[in-house]
């Protein structure tokens, strides 16, 4: 399975960035909602929409998909 995003659907809310357990372990400050300061994280909100950076680190746990309000990020 692969991590996919649809930027047209994305609200840029950043819930996935915060919910992603891998993101939080790479860059603990995202847990506080401050946004990631490194492209080492799997995804980040950039210019108001979600963007994948290090998707190779994804463990396919499905958390981002579960929390995304608009189905803008998913595993396929």
């Amino acid at each position: 399975m692969e991590l996919k995003v649809n930027q047209d659907n994305c609200l840029g809310c950043g819930v996935c960035v915060v919910a992603c357990p891998v993101n939080v372990s790479i860059s603990p400050e995202v847990a506080g909602g401050h946004g990631s300061k490194t492209t080492e994280t799997i995804m980040m909100v950039e210019n108001g929409v979600i963007k994948l950076f290090s998707e190779d680190k994804c463990t396919k746990c499905g958390t981002c998909q579960k929390f995304c309000p608009t189905d803008a990020i998913w595993l396929e």
């Binding site: 399975m1 396919k60 746990c61 998909q65 595993l75 396929e76």
Partner: peptide
């Protein structure tokens, strides 16, 4: 074993 987290949590058809 598939990507079990995603399969179980998102109801993927695999």
């Amino acid at each position: 074993l598939g990507d079990i987290g995603a399969i179980v949590r998102t109801g993927a058809e695999v």
